[in-house]
Write a protein that binds this DNA or RNA. Structure first.
Lengths: 212, 212
DNA sequence: GCCTGTGAAGGATTTCACAGCC
DNA sequence: GGCTGTGAAATCCTTCACAGGC
């Protein structure tokens, strides 16, 4: 398909899609790059340029059809499909992830949860029964899974990522405080609130000088 | 102090600091940009250039002193200090945040939690008693708080961010699935696992074509 | 008149490549 | 010989500005 679309562009598309959803719910039928940009703190030129990688969706003089563009973006991103997700590590964090209600409505269905702790295996979380992490490979061989969520301690993160990749997964969401790496061709995203805070403190310090 | 250091650079420093911590624990005393880069999937030149914004910390022919550089980075980022954090919104997500043990050891102390729900106010979470969100401004006026964590529903996020900013907070970590905006001079970071997944599905689709 | 789509310009970030020092 | 620090080059990304269509 279309080659070499910058990753920054891909990362912005879901934001556009979300804003368009909101506009659609408010009953708006048309939106200009100007108006959309104001809602999102993005320049209109950026929105137009981003969209131009995928086609010509607007109408001169009017703007974009909200539902039309939303449908297009959902198609491009695959948000019109169901995605199957497994979670590895069901400690406090993994628990919260499995029970978080925000994934399902967006098409991300959690189909399995794994843990190494014999005390956790077999327990019920949400509507899943926790599986033994030793079954990870066999489960992935027998069931379609699209995305792996890693919620294990930092010390185990790389090993778990390696197993997921070896088993054929190509998309990983890593919650472990550890910058695991993956081979070319595997998408990985890191969720790390501590890192996020640690980069903000630099600016606090710069502004205010040193606290007690 | 030093002016105009790119934000991307600041965002990488905590990663370097974390890797140096690990090296220090392993008893390594010296590391080259080459070796550090391999651990982090970052080019050696990038590491050297990033560090050069802040000074000259290495020794030609040897590399960097692990503990020395770590101390420097912690000082630059303010990680050698205690930071006071408040959490707004103590639903399931806020709960998990307050009870997550990963912040305290890094110097981020959660000093208050707020909610609007009368049924939640007064309840105990971790070692905090949930406060009425109406007390937010008075609490911030009387107590030093450095970082505000927003864990409210999307519909309330912008409003909460506005209140935090109006009360003088200049660093915000937003967990709400909603790209809130803030005035110049306020640092904000978004944590949004759904967005992260939605950008990965693009690549799955590109590789594999469409699933059922 | 308004707004898109897009080459070209501009700006930011990364990488190169090497002088200089240990 | 190995490795840093850094100008210069290369690359990547954003913004400009305007031709063209509604």
């Amino acid at each position: 398909m279309t080659l070499e679309i910058p990753e920054v562009v891909i990362n912005r598309l879901p934001i556009y899609a979300r804003a368009l959803s909101a506009l659609a719910e408010e009953g708006e039928s048309v939106v200009s790059s100007q108006t959309l940009g104001e809602k999102l703190d993005v320049t209109p030129a950026q929105i137009r340029k981003d969209l131009s990688y995928f086609g010509r969706f607007g109408k001169q003089g009017r703007g974009y059809n909200v539902n039309g563009l939303l449908r297009k973006l959902r198609e491009i991103l695959g948000l019109d499909q169901q995605w199957r997700v497994c979670v590895v590590g069901v400690g406090r964090l993994g628990h919260a992830i499995v029970e978080y209600g925000g994934f399902e409505p967006q098409g991300f269905q959690i189909v399995a949860a794994f843990d190494t702790d014999p005390g956790a295996v077999g327990r019920q979380v949400g509507n899943l029964s926790i599986r033994d992490a030793r079954e990870l490979e066999s489960f992935l061989a027998e069931n379609r899974v699209d995305i792996g969520v890693v919620a294990v301690p930092a010390s185990a993160a790389q090993q778990v990522v390696d197993r997921l990749v070896a088993a054929g997964l190509r998309s990983i969401l890593n919650y472990a405080p550890m910058p695991t790496h993956v081979p070319e061709g595997v998408a990985i995203r890191h969720i790390d609130p501590v890192l996020a805070m640690q980069s903000m403190t630099f600016y606090i310090k710069q502004r205010d000088g040193v606290h007690g």
